[in-house]
Every structure is written in C-alpha cells, then in structure tokens.
C-alpha cells in the first residue's frame, strides 16, 4: 500500500537498544496517550539455558503491516491505510467493536477509555505530514537505536540500515508483512 509516494518503515537496532523506555514516554507525551496505556513498549526475550543465556531487548509498536488484518477486519472502514502506508484509525468512524484488537497478532491496539475508540501507533503521521522527518520515539532515543524513513528510498537511513544489516520482523508466519524491522 503506497501513498504520498512514500512507504514509511521503522527499524530498531536490538544490539544497541538498552530498554530505557524513553521511546515509550516520548510517545505518551507527543500523542497524549491515555493514562495507563502506551502505543509502544519494551519487550525482552531471553533465550538459551543457564548459564548460556542471551537477551534481546526490543522497542515494539504497531508494525504498520502491508497486509494488515486489523484493516481487513474493520467493519466500518475506521481502520485504514493512511499516508506513506501507515495503518491509522479514524476515530469518528470507530464503533469500538474491537474486531481489530482481536485481529492483531501483535497486541498493538487498545481502547482509549476516554473516547471509546481504538488507539495505536501512527508512525507520528502528524509529524511526517507537517514535514518533520522523525518520530517522537526516534528523536528521544539516547542510543540512536530507532531508524525511520521511506523504505522505497534507498538513501534513507532506514533503507541503508536494512540493506547492510541482518534484520527480522515479528511473527513473519502471520503473513502480515510488517514495515517495522529489528536489526539483529
């Protein structure tokens, strides 16, 4: 899904992310996310058997899937593909039926208790639409672990990282084709 001639994507460098949660707080501030909820979060995976353990820390959020099951499941058209292929919610159209919450394998959506409609990461579309090239989480990251930009532009920072680094997406078998990547 390509809009505005751009295809926004994000990559998080798991080798430098320390899980400080600055991205979570920045997002809450930038987007006035309801108390007790967050549009992004830190996940920690531990693999192996003691003493041979390995830990991965990831800053996670909506994957802005190319084939988003939440958009397919929405009965009112409130969930839609917005500028740059972002997956957005038009709160005026949302009835709060929660089909999209049930459809998302990543748990990226929640009900904003104040308005009764769905809230989620927007890839800071209000910033990109205003010509600001960074997201709030990216801007605040103290280790510079978050890359954001046009996946179709080979000179963008996120494209260059993906071109040179080993990377993966979450739940590739779900077939959703995420535009959010993790650099190994």
């Amino acid at each position: 899904m390509k809009r505005n001639g751009e295809r926004y994507g994000m990559a998080v460098d798991t080798s430098t992310c320390v899980g400080c949660s600055a991205c979570v707080i920045a997002c809450k501030t930038e987007n006035a996310v309801a108390a007790g909820y967050s549009r992004d979060w830190i996940a920690t995976s531990t693999t192996g058997t003691f003493p041979h353990l390995a830990m991965t820390i990831r800053s996670e959020r909506c994957n802005h899937c190319e084939d988003a099951p939440c958009v397919s499941a929405c009965p009112t058209g409130a969930s839609y593909y917005g500028p740059g292929g972002t997956v957005l919610v038009n709160q005026r159209k949302c009835s709060g039926c929660k089909a999209c919450v049930a459809a998302c394998p990543y748990g990226a959506r929640f009900i904003d208790p104040a308005v009764g409609s769905i809230d989620k990461c927007t890839f800071c579309v209000h910033r990109t639409e205003a010509g600001i090239s960074t997201t709030a989480c990216q801007e605040v990251c103290p280790t510079g672990s978050i890359y954001f930009g046009d996946l179709d532009d080979p000179s963008s920072e996120v494209s260059r990282q993906l071109a040179t680094r080993e990377h993966y997406t979450l739940l590739p078998d779900a077939g959703t084709r995420p535009k959010h990547f993790y650099l190994a």
């Binding site: 899980g19 949660s21 979570v24 707080i25 007790g36 909820y37 967050s38 979060w41 830190i42 996940a43 920690t44 995976s45 531990t46 693999t47 820390i57 929660k98 919450v101 748990g107 959506r109 929640f110 009900i111």
Partner: peptide
C-alpha cells in the same frame, strides 16, 4: 525462550 513485556504496557485488554 521466554518473552516478557517489561515496561509500561499494562493494557488489561491485551495483557497477559
């Protein structure tokens, strides 16, 4: 492999 959401996401609709 164990996986946990370590910070701030306390969304009763989704977690655990």
């Amino acid at each position: 492999m164990t996986q946990e959401i370590t910070t701030t996401r306390s969304n009763a609709l989704i977690d655990p």
